[in-house]
Structure formats: C-alpha cells, structure tokens
Design a protein around this nucleic acid. Structure first.
Length: 416
DNA sequence: TCTGGGGTCCTAGGACCC
DNA sequence: TCTGGGGTCCTAGGACCC
C-alpha cells in the first residue's frame, strides 16, 4: 500500500503556528510582491476567497478586520516542511517527498495501516503544529483521492483508507473528475463534453478510447483509478533542473539592475544545486516585459550558456548567467520578470578534464567553506560582488519573521 | 494600479543520416 | 534531378502538478 500525507492549508498553517490566536480566524498568504492569494485557512475559504485571486480584490476584508494576511515567507515554510518530513520519515519505511507540503509514504509490510495513519496525523500535529491529512490506498492516484476524503470529512480523524474494491467503487462514484490527480484543465473540458463527471464515469471507458483521447498519461491515470499501480514510488530523486525566477514590483529598464537580479538568481540556483550535490553545464537566462500591458512594447528572450565542465561554483554560474543576459538584453523595454534555469544536472564525483584550467579539488574546498559561512551568517551576507543587494526589489509588506531559521527573528518568551 | 514560482513528462516537428 | 522509408536526436511547446 501507498500513502499520501498532505499538510492542510500549509502556508496558512505555518503562519498560525506562530500566531496561535489566529487558529480559528480567516488567514491568507500572498504570493511574491503581495500579488495574489496562494494559501487560505478554512475560515478564509468560507469567506468565499478563491485560490489565486489578486489581493486587491479581497483587501476590503482586511480593512474591515475580517481577514488576516501574510506575505509569503518561504524560508519559514521550507524549514517547517523539513520538520514535518522528518517526523514522518521516523515512522514509515520509505518516503518520497513530492512537494513542500506533501509526501508519499511506502507502507508495504505494515500490519495495521489505519492505526499508523492516525498516529502519523496526530504526531505531526503535536510535534510541529501542522495539521495533515493521510490517504492510504493501492497506488498514488487513489492515495491522493483518499487524502482528499480525509481532509473533507471530519469523521475520518485525518486518515482515510481505500483498501477494498467496494470502498474503491464508492469513493470513485463520489469523486469529481476534476479533482483527480493527473486530470488537468484540457482533459476536464473534454471529459465534461463527453458527460464524464465523476472518477467512476471515467473508469467505464475502454482502454483504446482513453489512449486515443488522452494518450499514455491518460491511460496510466485510468489504470490507477482501477487499482492498478502504474506510477512508481521513487524515494528522493535529485532534481533534473532548478529554476529561480521572480516578477518585479516595479519594472526594470536598465541593464545594471536587471543584471544584479539575474546574478542573484544564478547564485540561488548554485545554492540549491549544492544542496543536492549536483552540478550543471547549462545555464538558461530569460526575461519578459509585462504581458498584461498593451500600452508598452513587448520583448522576451532566452539565452543558453554552456560550461565546458559541469560546475556548482557560484562565481562560474553568475558569470555565465551575466554573459547570457548581455547577449539578449535590449534597451528601451520595461522588464517585469526574469529567471535563471540550470538544466542537465549531474550528481556524484567531480569530473576530471585534462584541459580544465581550474583545479576542481581546490575549488570544491573553497565552495565548502563558503557554504559553511553562508550557513552561519545567512545567504545575503556572503555574495558575489555583482549580485548587488536587490532585497528592496520585492514587495513583502506583511511578511512574518523567520522564527525558526534566523537568530535575530526567533520568538522571545517573556516570563511575567 | 494590482495577476506566483517552482517543477516533470509527453509530443510533434525539423534536421540529419543511411 | 528526383525518388523513398526509416531511424535518432534535439527543441519548443503544451499539459499537468503543487
């Protein structure tokens, strides 16, 4: 059996851990630049606030004192996520972290899985303050479905198990097709056109029709819904590409500012690369003007820079990204977004190249020293000169403190 | 006036080769 | 000069996920 552990309203729940007085209040978390809503507590959902709405549309609730709002604080969420995953890791044989707020668990060989699910849910909440929903079933698609039942119905106490054909059919009949994992916008449109409204309706199709309409991915979802395992359990796979990108609060027109941002993105990519012990030989830089504005000339472009030897050296990555940017930058445009992608990531031993002018072993020692420094002093204290300090470019009006990762922002306990 | 920031996989089509 | 079927590799774009 496979399980899915899903944190409820994760970002909002993280904020609540440090604001217990908001435990029963409507809370939302905003995207970068405070642009739109990306997480909502149940009470905020009850107010009718939809996922992804622009903040200005719900600001009236805040002004009326009916809604509490936070800018996103990914440093905090990352750290809370690691804590949640570590509690879970200690209770099951294998886990596959799927996203910041979800992990699959392998529970094969466990005798009483329902008992385990309940214990998991209780312990994660007790030890981290984050409520979770657990779904257990034969494969990932059904486990996802089970976790949604666990979240929706209080009677499950945080854990729903789909373990018999009868339970499976009952669940499929109750489950809307648009909530099925792997069925997106395009497929939903087609499904509705053909009169498919529940997961059960879909399972009644024959295989060749599914193949014809939705291809191989459609077939594997269709099979999984019928209890056949198609999507493998893959514990801790290293990422194949890493992206760092941002929209800017105010559009950027000059090369120097854009270049400083891009250098920063490259540095962040280098950091993420080193965390997974990977190196890259290909750095992609891209940018675009504001596509929502019709009154300005539009320009977007992509540049690819290849390194002769795969590297995770922040200096090499920053240089490459800057070179790429130079080759495509044009004056006279107002840039709204930019990003750096590193792809073709390789992991493992340092490659030896006879013609490589750089002493890779010495370089690695320096980089490890920098990693340690960063760990002690924070990312913004240890930078490549060209990064500049662009912390002011991004709006974070309602940001909470980094309670768990920054000594200066740690919670103070006062004894009265 | 405001519109996220990450990822993965599949497919179609072009270039090139035999 | 035109005629053919296939194969591989690469890329861009789409679709999906959170």
């Amino acid at each position: 059996m496979i399980g899915l552990v899903d944190c409820n309203n994760f970002f909002a729940s993280c904020e609540r851990v440090f604001h217990p007085e908001l435990r029963t209040k409507p809370v939302v978390v905003l995207s970068n630049n405070d642009g739109c809503v990306i997480a909502r507590s149940n009470e905020a959902k009850a107010l009718g606030i939809k996922m992804g709405v622009p903040f200005y549309q719900v600001k009236k609730f805040v002004d009326e004192g009916k809604l509490h709002v936070f800018s996103s604080n990914y440093t905090l969420y990352d750290d809370m996520s690691k804590r949640v995953m570590s509690v879970i890791r200690g209770m099951v044989p294998r886990i596959e972290v799927y996203s910041i707020d979800e992990t699959f668990i392998d529970v094969s060989g466990v005798e009483n899985i329902y008992q385990l699910g309940l214990q998991l849910s209780a312990r994660v909440e007790k030890w981290t303050g984050i409520p979770v929903s657990v779904g257990l079933a034969e494969n990932k698609t059904l486990a996802k479905m089970a976790s949604k039942f666990a979240k929706k119905y209080k009677g499950y106490h945080g854990c729903c198990v789909i373990d018999t054909p009868e339970r499976c059919e009952k669940a499929l009949r109750l489950f809307p097709i648009n909530d099925v994992w792997g069925i997106g916008r395009r497929m939903i449109k087609q499904m509705n056109y053909y009169g498919v409204h529940t997961a059960y309706d879909f399972t009644k199709w024959n295989r060749s029709r599914v193949q014809r309409e939705f291809g191989v991915t459609g077939v594997s979802t269709w099979l999984e819904l019928q209890g056949i395992r198609c999507i493998d359990f893959e514990p801790s796979v290293a990422k194949k590409s890493i992206t760092t990108s941002r929209s800017f609060r105010e559009e950027i027109t000059d090369f120097e500012s854009l270049s400083a941002m891009v250098a920063d993105f490259a540095a962040l990519c280098a950091k993420k690369l080193r965390e997974q012990h990977g190196r890259t030989a290909e750095i992609v830089v891209y940018f675009r003007t504001n596509t929502f504005r019709t009154d300005q000339p539009q320009y977007s472009n992509v540049a690819k820079v290849e390194l002769t030897v795969p590297s995770s050296d922040v200096r090499e990555l920053v240089t490459a990204a800057t070179t790429g940017l130079k080759s495509i930058f044009r004056k006279g445009y107002a840039y709204k977004q930019a990003g750096v992608v590193v792809t073709n990531i390789v992991n493992g031993v340092i490659p030896i190249d006879l013609f490589d002018p750089v002493d890779r072993v010495r370089q690695e020692k320096l980089l490890q020293t920098l990693d340690k420094l960063r760990g002690k002093m924070g990312d913004r204290m240890v930078r490549v000169a060209s990064q500049g300090d662009c912390s002011g470019e991004i709006n974070r009006k309602y940001r909470s403190h980094c309670y768990t990762t920054n000594l200066k922002e740690i919670i103070e306990v006062k004894i009265m």
